[in-house]
């Protein structure tokens, strides 16, 4: 797959190079016509400059990227910008401009929206952030992604933008919403136990091959519901990587015969104030 990553590095940013210039330069080349995957990295000062210009440029230049199937907006490390400080914008227009897109990944949730949340061919939607807003959850919930096979949402913590409730999260997995979904990731959450308990016996699990509840504050409480679920037993992979489960619970998983990732156990403390998801800031 032909792939290209554009980003503005330390020197370029100091010298006034703009990500728009790089996008336009790429669009001006013939290779853009064959490009299947585009990764937008650090666009320079993402802690104060949002992604709206990028969205606008990609929409304007859509005819130069006819083969684009995969798009990542905001692929930057903490060295470039803390995830919770990345300023996004409404990514919705991208969905309308690129009807053949299959995979969309967004990193950062400050001022992120996804309106209209509608796409007939999108197979993968991933949002990586330290705290996902209720409005984005609602957009996805009320939107339409008929062909979605993988939904991976970092829910994060209240301090960094997670202002939803368990109900807002659960409304996403009501039966029939994503008929083709096989990978569900509701992860990196400070209410990971509640999510685990609610998802453990939800009808949607029957259609999944992977349930990803990793990177959150999962303890034995949530794990108990999962390990006792008949639906969970049928999964091909249960991802619980980064967790606060006890050694005893980990042993039970090891003996369960299930394909479960229980790596990266966090030091457990009885005080839940000291439990954090993996990616928050």
């Amino acid at each position: 797959m032909s792939e290209c990553k554009l980003s503005v590095d330390y020197d370029q940013y100091e010298n006034g190079v703009k990500i728009i210039d790089l996008i336009e330069e790429l669009a001006g080349k013939d290779e853009s016509l064959q490009l299947e995957s585009l990764i937008i990295g650090d666009w320079g000062g993402a802690y104060e400059n949002d992604s709206s210009e990028i969205v606008e440029a990609l929409v304007r230049l859509k005819d130069r990227f006819p083969q684009l199937r995969s798009l990542f907006i905001g692929d930057m490390s903490y060295e470039e910008c803390e995830v919770s400080w990345i300023n996004q914008s409404n990514i919705g227009p991208i969905l309308a401009a690129y009807p053949d897109l299959r995979s969309l990944t967004i990193k950062g949730s400050t001022d992120l929206s996804l309106v209209p949340a509608q796409h007939d061919k999108l197979e993968e939607l991933t949002i990586i952030c330290g705290g996902l807003g209720k409005d984005v959850l609602t957009s996805i919930n009320e939107g339409s992604f008929k062909n979605l096979k993988k939904l991976e949402l970092y829910l994060g913590v209240e301090d960094y933008g997670f202002d939803g409730s368990l109900e807002d999260v659960l409304s996403l997995i009501e039966p029939g919403k994503f008929p083709l979904l096989t990978y569900l990731g509701l992860k990196d959450s400070e209410i990971q136990d509640e999510i685990a308990i609610a998802v453990a016996n939800a009808p949607i699990v029957d259609q999944l091959h992977t349930l990803d509840l990793s990177m959150g504050t999962l303890t034995d409480k949530g794990a108990e519901a999962l390990i006792n679920s008949e639906k969970v037993k049928k999964l091909k992979l249960l991802d619980l990587n980064y967790h606060y489960m006890s050694d005893e619970m980990m042993n039970r998983w090891k003996q369960s015969g299930l394909n479960v990732d229980i790596s990266d156990q966090q030091e457990s403390d009885d005080d839940e104030d000291y439990r954090y998801p993996s990616l928050t800031e």
Partner: peptide, 13 residues
Amino acid sequence: AGIDVCLSSSSYR
């Protein structure tokens, strides 16, 4: 001397 050198992200300068 031990010189600490970093490579900048993306351009590896």
